[in-house]
Nucleic acid binder design. Structure first.
Length: 113
DNA sequence: ATTCTGACTTGGG
DNA sequence: CCCCAAGCCAGAA
């Protein structure tokens, strides 16, 4: 298909894909970018999430970096909040603050259109 | 147009 | 496993 609508697609894709991540699982920025058909847009995914309103229903906390860690934020307390939300969903953290991706990484079998 | 910055990722050492 | 350089890309100044 043509690229004429590509400018807004990433944001829309993030809002469509992130809610598919089940509680108890996490996904990386790179994965979301790839599923959004923009494999090199991991940073952009982070930007979209950063722009979500605080009252959003989108489970932004389920997106972490490829190292299995919560990405550092400029906003104070944001990273701590993310960890708390994930722990409430059953995610466990190693002493170094990382998550065992072999156990918690989401492996979608198919992405709904 | 240019530079800087950031919720990224990967490859090398 | 840690650290760093590059590559990456959009938004702001």
């Amino acid at each position: 298909m043509h690229q004429s609508t590509a400018s807004t697609s990433l944001r829309d894709a993030v809002c469509r894909l992130v809610p598919l991540i089940p509680a108890g699982y996490v996904c990386t920025y790179g994965q979301i970018a790839a599923y959004a058909d923009s494999p090199k847009a991991a940073r952009q995914v982070g930007m979209v999430l950063a722009g979500l309103p605080e009252a959003t229903l989108i489970p932004w906390q389920r997106v972490i970096n490829a190292q299995g860690a919560i990405s550092p934020r400029s906003k104070p307390g944001a990273a701590e909040m993310q960890r708390i939300l994930l722990e409430e969903e059953g995610i466990s953290f190693r002493s170094d603050g990382t998550i065992d991706l072999r156990k918690h990484l989401w492996h979608p079998e198919s992405i709904p259109q």
